[in-house]
Simulated scan of single mutants.
Amino acid sequence: MNFRQIEAFRTVIQSGTVSRAAELMGVTQPNVSRLIGELEEVVGFALFDRVKGRLIPTPEGQAFYRDVDQSFRGLDLLRSSAARIRDFGSGQIRIASLAAAGSTIVPRAVKKFRESFPSAIVTLSIMTSASVRNHVVDGEYDLGIAADEVDLSGVEHQVFGSFAALCAIPAGHPLAAKKVIGPKDFDGMDYVALSSGDKARRQLDRLCEQAGAKPNLVIETPFAITACALVLEGVGIAIVNPLAIDGFSERGLIFRPFEPAVYFKSYLLFRPDVQKARLVRAFVNSLLEVRNSRPSVHFDQGCEKPTAD
């Protein structure tokens, strides 16, 4: 039994005649008849009754056709799967992101990405930058977004962005009246700090030390979005990544520029052992589009909430 015999059998049943089957298969009618005869010898029973020059499926032939058709449906699925993998990679993209981007810019990129690839499956996990790097290197994720404190050795990478920090201030706080916050303003203030390994945190610590300012460190957290939530509750002030501030000003949190500028730099990380699949390239393009279309934050005099372009 071979594929061509099975194909001839299925095509005759679906087309209704040997002549039409021959046309669809691109062979002669005698070839189709020969293939049917060979298949009947292999299976050991008649697939068709010959009635006035026509082939009528026998009950056994009809039963056999049901299994044949099911097998061809499976082949069609395999062809679709192969085409999807050829065109889009695996049909699935796995993304690991630091929290600041994972709660704002990445979801927007997912929405934009799905406009072009609605059937692709996206897995998004939020974790520390160190974990992002390790999971990408281990091949568990196709794309990572991590802060610049991670070890970039052994991983393909490109700069995603460098974002000027904002100072997050609770409503009613004395610093809310200031247009710009500087290191000296942190002196004696309750302070919500990012983790000690965060480069932006270290920049702020150096600036405060140079200015002779001694903030009162209340709590540390690795996530800027958590820092915003803590500031909203009045725990202290904080320097935060602007990617993480969405929705907080509407809830009453106040943001001010910080000078001299402190930057949150982030990288896109890629698995080092494989060529980037089309889905990964497409998602990176969506990320860059969303990044480039981010509204600028402006601060009106006397206004406690930032407004966007």
Rank of each mutant, 00 (worst) to 15 (best):
D185V: 10
P170F: 01
K179T: 00
Q210H: 09
H173K: 07
G236F: 08
A229W: 07
M189I: 14
A193Q: 06
A176K: 08
G234L: 03
R206T: 05
P215F: 08
D187V: 14
A193L: 06
T226M: 03
Q210P: 09
R201V: 10
V231G: 01
K199S: 01
A211V: 03
N216V: 14
P222G: 12
Q203K: 08
K179P: 01
L217P: 07
D198Y: 10
I169D: 10
T226R: 04
D187P: 07
E220I: 04
D185P: 07
P215W: 02
A168I: 11
A177P: 01
L194W: 05
G236S: 06
R202Y: 00
E209N: 08
D187G: 14
R206E: 02
K214C: 12
A224Y: 08
L166C: 03
T221H: 03
V180I: 13
C167R: 12
M189E: 15
F186C: 12
I239W: 14
C167P: 09
P183V: 10
L194P: 02
F186D: 04
C228S: 03
Q203M: 03
N241P: 04
P222H: 13
P174K: 04
P174S: 05
D185Q: 02
L232Y: 01
T221C: 02
L232N: 07
D185H: 09
P170S: 02
V192A: 11
R201E: 15
G172S: 07
P215Q: 04
D198G: 03
R206L: 01
K179N: 03
D190P: 15
A176Q: 11
G172D: 14
D190Y: 03
A168P: 11
P170T: 04
G182H: 01
H173E: 10
I181K: 15
K214Y: 04
